[in-house]
Amino acid sequence: MKTKLLSFAIIFSALIYGLSAQAHDPKEHMQDAKKPDCAAMDNMDQSKMDMNDPVMQAMMKQCMNGMKHEQKSGDNSQKKNKQEVEVPPINDYEATKHNH
């Protein structure tokens, strides 16, 4: 009887501990995740953009990821454009932007 109670207590504690460890899993936040408003980058003063600045690099990554995602989904659905569009490295972002 005591062994059963002890086993139950251990399993219950482990379960609670496991659940608490998952409480802040980033995936949980994805349910109401907002999308980055990359259009706002158009309004930023490009003369002040420093590509070596980690903030700027992070913004590029955020917005480039989205563009890559869009391009892939566009290719899959339409299958019109057979040319593979490569996402340029961060430092080539400005050149890409002017081409679009």
């Binding site: 907002k34 999308k35 990359c38 917005c63 990821n65 995602h69």
Partner: peptide
């Protein structure tokens, strides 16, 4: 932009 977890929808 930096804090959004979702994929970019608007793009450039």
């Amino acid at each position: 932009i930096l804090t959004a977890r979702g994929e970019n929808s608007t793009g450039h």
